[in-house]
């Protein structure tokens, strides 16, 4: 056994590389087949390469409709999550009340529950309440898990924020609203932004909960799912997949950069 820095055994290195390939090779294939000239089946290697599917995808109104729907749902669900998640975080982090821990768990639960369970539960609840499935039921479904990520980010930041910051603001003449606006919000901002971006990414590529809470609406991931059974113009689906990956990956990357090293932002500046 060697203990120097580059000293992982060769077999361990190989296993790690194999693991990474297993995780990411399928993704590379998705990207690859967005450029293939063969439109009916996935041949390997592709017989030829073309960019024409990008223009085909661009021209298709059904893709645009699905894209706009997904975008709208993600934006509204994220907006609702930011408001509700911040309020919940403020309640849990700032005050003590009976059942606080239980409430905290209940807020986080939707992200731990299988999407199928959340989906079925929501669907039957909407049924019982005779709420017709619509755009808004999808938003509600998405909000259940979007709230969680915002809440988690906000609560972590609030716990690291010294309570005397708010007292200092009150002490210096600011009322509660001014304190919220000038001290609390700027301190929470990056956490909320990060939480919001994660929420957006989660909502944008969500399939399971959406299938249960949607009526006739087709979000982009649902459109992709239905597209898979169709034998014609398969690479268009891959083109869309490439864009979905980019649209969801960028916010997650940005969220990571926003919360990185935030200890120095929210703490006492040590």
């Amino acid at each position: 056994m060697r203990f120097n820095r580059s000293g992982a055994p060769r077999r361990l290195k190989l296993a790690a590389i194999a693991g990474l390939l297993f995780l990411h090779l399928p993704l590379v294939l998705i990207f690859l087949y967005a450029f293939t000239t063969e439109e009916k089946s996935y041949q390997f290697p592709p017989p030829g390469y073309t960019l024409k599917w990008f223009s085909v995808a661009w021209e298709r109104q059904d893709i645009w409709d699905a894209f706009m729907l997904s975008l709208k749902i993600a934006c509204i669900a994220t907006g609702a999550a930011i408001v509700l998640g911040t309020l919940a975080a403020a309640a849990v982090a700032r005050t003590r009340f009976f059942g606080r821990e239980a409430l905290s768990l209940l807020i986080i639960l939707p992200i731990a529950l299988p999407g199928v369970v959340t989906g079925i539960a929501l669907r039957s609840a909407f049924d019982i309440a005779s709420i017709p499935f619509s755009f808004w039921t999808i938003v509600l479904g998405h909000a259940t898990f979007c709230v969680v990520v915002v809440y988690n980010n906000a609560v972590a930041r609030l716990r690291r924020t010294s309570p005397s910051l708010l007292e200092a603001s009150l002490d210096l003449g600011a009322n509660s609203f001014q304190t919220f606006r000038h001290v609390l919000l700027p301190n929470l901002a990056t956490a909320l932004l990060a939480g919001g971006m994660l929420a957006f990414a989660l909502s944008f590529d969500e399939v399971i909960v959406t299938t249960f809470t949607a009526g006739q609406q087709e979000t982009l991931p649902i459109w992709m799912l239905s597209e898979l059974v169709r034998p014609r113009q398969r690479p268009v689906t891959n083109v869309v997949a490439v864009f979905v990956v980019i649209i969801t990956f960028l916010p997650i990357l940005m969220a990571y950069y926003f919360t990185r090293g935030s200890e120095t932002i929210a703490g006492q500046g040590k």
């Binding site: 910051l165 200092a168 002490d171 003449g173």
Partner: peptide, 20 residues
């Protein structure tokens, strides 16, 4: 009378400087 309407000011133990 809330803190923000009192003619006193406080220096906090942890200083409580606004980090932003």
């Amino acid at each position: 009378v809330p803190p923000y309407r009192r003619s006193v000011n406080t220096v906090f133990q942890d200083y409580a400087l606004f980090p932003h």
